[in-house]
Nucleic acid binder design. Sequence first.
DNA 1: GGCCAGGCTAGCA
DNA 2: TGCTAGCATGGC
Length: 298
Amino acid sequence: MERLTPTAPYDFPQMLRRPLSRISKAVAIDPETASYSRALRLPTRIVPVTVTDAGAVDQPDLRLAYPDHLSEDEGAAVRATVRRMFSTGIRLDQFHELMSATPEWEDAMERFRGLRPILDADPFESMVKVIIGQQLNVRFAAALTERLVDLGGETVEWNGVLLPVFPSAEQVARWSYDELQRCSFSRRKAEYVVDFARSVVDGRVDLDALWRMTDGEIGERLTSLRGIGRWTVECFLLFGMGRPDVLPAADIGVQNAVRRLYGMDRRPGEDEVRRLAEPWAPWRSYATYYLWQSLIRA
DNA sequence: GGCCAGGCTAGCA
DNA sequence: TGCTAGCATGGC
């Protein structure tokens, strides 16, 4: 058991009550004990991890457990991944300070105090989930993601439980479009997902290289692939790369949430959202996440 | 039953 | 560059 020492405020129980789209079969959440378990895919092996919090919002005590037979390098990789996924290095107090200057945000900032997104474990998984989420209601998107995990069929044993593992790019690349269509994927969505996996496997897309790129460079690289547009890249930057200042201003959900928060009589357009959001920089990703939350927990 | 959902592509002006 | 039809499916 290792301590992860995030900065306060940090509301772990609230983070576990996430929007449906971020929950898949590959993640086991126990609300009773406030614990989060899943398998991580390292280059060398699959590693199950469990994260718990024995503290409170203003004194978080986040802890990480994983099997003790890992090498030093593997342990370091697991710790780095979990720290990134659980946003332990983010100074959320600065975000709260910034947004508290806007009266429209007062209620949301109080309700969501300490809330951070739980990011995806790796870029491949993230992109696949975002492509699945295009233009679909979140519930159905979550169901499709579960079927994808089922199709992979891989599990790892951890504390007496079998944890399903999100399929690798190599696995998905071998599937046919038909296989995904039988899981209720549209033909196009099946093509987008499988083709993306194939471009990762054959090296046309270097996911590791993305970490060293700017948001703009990542967008340029990824939107050149069929099925990946601006919205998809923005969500990928948010949930896959953990970039802090992304604003999907064309997103219907963001527009609906802004409309409600600001008491508008119609849905604002992309430009209007962008203008309104200027003062939220450099925290526009967190503002976006809180807006989505406000829709789900209305 | 119809409209909508945390869009994208291809085709056209 | 900017607009639009078509896509596919489940939720409500």
